[in-house]
Design a protein around this nucleic acid. Structure first.
Lengths: 352, 352
DNA sequence: AACTATTGATAAATCGATTTTTCAATGCTG
DNA sequence: CAGCATTGAAAAATCGATTTATCAATAGTT
């Protein structure tokens, strides 16, 4: 469209000329410094108004000691959990006048490392890292080696170098155990990804300890796969094929819940009549399908808020030992959890 | 960890000093300019290596004519569709040495406008805008008024100022119509959000025209709500309460599919025995639940690729009239679609 | 041998802000 | 009224790169 007048934006010097003052004065006015004559303040505001001046954040950040950019590194963007995490982080960064630059590591530690390097190039003020593995992975090492300011979230428990914020996996798993044992389940399959992660161990142990405390004779089978979903699916399929017949499945991750559901489908089992299902991570569809799926809801908003809070404290120079926060989860018991089925599943196998 | 040596990163001048050349020479070497003595190239490389030098993108972008930043503005991050869109855009930007800065408008045109202003402050090279409303909303106006370079995606058809890329909604809807009519449905409820959007009209008309061409006596009811989900839910509930008994529901958006499903649940209707369901937008869970849900899959990868392709062409100075691309969708017919039920729906729950 | 081209590199200007330093004008004190 | 402190603003340095202008040393011409 017509007027090419728009193409060059006014700089602080243009404003200064228009107002008949120096660039330094304009800068002061923009930052509300009080040592400027009221008359000049007026003229600067008028010039700003007339020219539609807005400061270039690149230029101002270049000069400043700390850049007003926060980097966020998450394993992926496709899930509701991380999607909503980005939304929260974005809002919280903005609230403080910072820009959030989010990147996805695609569940790869190499990419995670590369992104961290790039964030360091940008000299971001701080990083929110949801590591691919856990707090002892490459990401943390790199952040530390380069003296970056950061917080780790989600797949972490605690770290000796960085603040961490995550869901209280252990308590949540314990609650799941109470729920399942309470309903009479005595044979439970636990499925999950990332066998070596501290977070997975916490979820598993939280469940196991509570379950065994409630009934020492409970049988807990565990299927963990390294990272990919398909091997997990294969293992679960194999497990059921061997004739194993748990009365409930507890999934430590959303993907596991999906895999379990699809394996139930394959075998024509229905929840909760044939088998019960509960998993970590809630999703919108879970309250809509038939049956509705029970889930552990992680407090995304609180995790994000706490993480940003800690991060900005560190950015503002707070020292002291790293803190490790655990945010309380909520167990939503839905239709997919019931009492153990009375008889053996169709297709053979033993009952309870 | 110990050494505070890490805290100040080397600048191009440090490299220059180390190599015994000038900063300009270092810059040339970094950009592969050939007019540098091989010996000096060596020394610069060595200095870069020893110091671990990496250019500061802020500083280099400040000087450059075009900044290597692409802005992406999407209505939200929580859905698989936009989540995966961000992932693709991120990768495509990176591939060309650009950084993607994504922001969510939260379905608000005010926020969309504010983000655009901020992106303009950053002087991004280009913007990928998935407008809250459609190509005639405030976002497009602003981009144009400020002479920004951009592409619009998703809720658009074509525009006289910007290139657009979106799913071929009309063809996809036509295919849905063929499928439903072909199976014998003669009374279909279409639900959706955003009544005034061109994209909604295309989806609706694509369906209506094809359906009526196949059988002029088909009854098509339509429930559209402005933007919020809850009014839509109320309308649908009211519609069914009035005794309307379509044999199939076609949802124009993912949210609509969820609302429809939950309303079916409320009434104890099962797909596809009591009513068939098909909707725009696929999601991972749809192939896992019971029944599996039929969906129109939008080619996110192609939309992203085409959008970035067009955008970079414009950034590189290509002129000419804006193009409007439509990418082909795929209809995944799953269990939620069947033949119309033989009789009227039971007033209460149906058995399985 | 003198003069022009060419080559390769450096110095300086620039991007658009912030921050520090300098400086002029005014006010106050004795 | 001289001397000093205060106030307010301009000038200059800075951030870390890129780009342009300038310059010295060599090569090539006649």
């Amino acid at each position: 469209m017509s007027s090419g007048a728009v193409h060059k934006r006014p700089s602080i010097h243009d404003v200064a000329n228009h107002a008949g003052v120096s660039a330094a004065t304009v800068s002061k006015v923009m930052h509300g410094v009080s040592t400027v004559k009221p008359e000049n303040v007026q003229r600067v505001f008028e010039a700003v108004e007339r020219l539609g001046y807005r400061a270039d954040p690149l230029a101002s950040d270049l000069r400043r000691a700390k850049r007003r950019i926060i980097g966020a590194i998450l394993p992926e963007f496709e899930s509701e959990f991380f999607g909503s995490m980005v939304t929260h982080l974005e809002r919280l960064a903005e609230l403080r006048g910072y820009t959030l630059v989010a990147a996805s590591s695609g569940e790869s530690e190499e990419r995670e490392a590369e992104i961290l390097r790039r964030m360091q190039d940008w000299r971001v003020a701080g990083v929110v890292l949801a590591p691919v593995r856990d707090e002892h992975g490459r990401g943390g090492e790199l952040m530390q080696a380069h003296g970056m300011t950061g917080v780790m979230i989600d797949r972490v428990l605690s770290d000796e170098s960085f603040d961490t914020v995550s869901a209280d996996s252990m308590s949540a798993s314990a609650e799941v155990a109470r729920e399942l044992i309470g309903r009479g389940h005595r044979h439970v399959l636990v499925v999950g990804l990332g066998e070596q992660g501290a977070c997975v161990r916490a979820r598993l142990e939280g469940f196991r300890r509570t379950a065994e405390a409630l009934d020492p004779k409970v049988q807990i089978d565990v299927i963990l796969c390294e990272s990919d979903v398909e091997p997990l699916r294969a293992s679960i399929r194999d497990y059921f094929s061997r004739g194993e017949r748990p009365t409930a499945v507890f999934s430590l991750f959303l993907k596991g819940t999906l895999v379990a559901l699809s394996e139930f489908r394959r075998r024509g089992w229905h929840c909760p009549d044939d088998i019960s299902l509960v998993g970590f991570d809630d999703a919108e569809w879970m309250s809509v399908t038939w049956p509705t799926i029970a889930a552990v809801v992680q407090p995304v908003d609180q995790i994000a808020a706490q993480a940003m809070d800690m991060l900005f404290r560190r950015i503002d120079g707070e020292t002291g030992p790293p803190t490790a926060r655990l945010e309380r989860c909520q167990l939503l018991v839905r239709e997919s959890v019931g009492a153990p089925s009375s008889g053996p599943h169709p297709g053979g196998g033993a009952g309870q």
